[in-house]
């Protein structure tokens, strides 16, 4: 594939999520990937729209928002450098479940879900290693949500 920017490939390889993974896989993941910048207050992802990218946060801060008609929009989590935004791209129906908004100027790497999914399916070793990194992210978010649920500050 020709659409690989060496710069982007290196940036992906440096991101904590990809660091140390099989270079061949990093190379595959870099196909069609691109750096994107979001200004303060702009949407990175909108709830309900197709989740086509796997977003690696390089710099800045992204807020995950929940909106409801009867209350003000609530930020339930912020995601910073070195972290990844969501898994909607991986799981059907590949639609964003939350609004994600840049709190300040935010630089990300946007990887193409439609490239990653077949690559992971075709190479079980890659797939396994990828999930081994992804499951802790899920586990940590789940645990944090539980902690939030018990309301640490309840009297």
């Amino acid at each position: 594939m020709s659409e690989i920017s060496e710069e982007v490939r290196e940036a992906i390889g440096r991101h904590p999520f990809f660091a140390g993974l099989d270079p061949a896989f990093v190379r595959e993941a870099a196909v069609g990937a691109e750096p994107r910048t979001f200004g303060p207050g702009t949407l990175v992802a909108r709830e309900g729209t197709p989740a086509e990218t796997f977003v690696l946060v390089v710099a800045g801060k992204i807020a995950l928002e929940v909106g409801a008609p009867d209350r003000p929009t609530l930020t339930v989590q912020t995601i910073g450098p070195g972290e990844v935004l969501g898994w909607s791209w991986l799981l059907p129906p590949h639609r964003w479940r939350f609004d994600a908004r840049a709190v300040k100027e935010t630089h990300v790497l946007a990887l193409r879900g439609d490239r990653l999914r077949p690559a992971l399916a075709a190479h079980p070793a890659w797939g396994f290693e990828f999930l081994r990194r992804f499951v802790p992210v899920l586990a940590e978010r789940l645990e944090n949500t539980r902690v939030q649920l018990v309301d640490l500050h309840a009297r």
Binding site: K61, A63, L64, E65, P72, T73, L74, T75, V76, Q77, T78, G80, V103, K104, N144, V147, Q148, D151, L152, H153
Partner: peptide, 23 residues
């Protein structure tokens, strides 16, 4: 400084206090 939940007027971190420890 982090808060469990915030409105749009909060530019800081959101997440339970333990989420800030790794940093």
């Amino acid at each position: 400084v982090t808060v469990d939940a915030a409105g749009r007027d909060w530019y800081g971190d959101v997440g339970v206090v333990t989420t800030r420890l790794p940093d």
